[in-house]
């Protein structure tokens, strides 16, 4: 089971959209995942066992975990590249 943090700035609106897209991507590729949907400010306290962090807002801080920018799931630009980046972390 891979554990992914999906976070956005304030409310949970945009991370929900990104989280759903990631869930579907992982299902399609038979990767069991647990998705933790939280606010950006809550990332720090939830890092245990996390394999990947995806945020819709670019984070400048290094949490010591693989990171992928999830904005393409909202804008539709560069979605494939983003999916590949996520899969390479989870399957690597």
């Amino acid at each position: 089971m891979k554990k992914i943090i999906v976070a956005c700035g304030g409310a949970v609106a945009t991370s929900t959209v990104a989280a759903t897209a990631i869930k579907e991507l992982c299902q399609k590729n038979n990767i069991p995942v647990e998705i933790l949907q939280i606010r950006m400010t809550e990332i720090e306290g939830n890092l245990e066992g996390v394999d990947l962090i995806v945020t819709t807002m670019r984070i400048k801080k290094d949490f010591g975990k693989p990171y992928v920018n999830g904005m393409p799931f909202l804008s539709g630009l560069n979605v494939e590249k983003t999916e590949q980046a996520i899969l390479s972390v989870l399957q690597g």
Binding site: G9, A11, M57, S75
Partner: peptide, 11 residues
């Protein structure tokens, strides 16, 4: 919120 977490999106 817009000040701290802006919501512009480049399409």
């Amino acid at each position: 919120r817009e000040k701290n977490f802006p919501t512009g999106i480049v399409l």
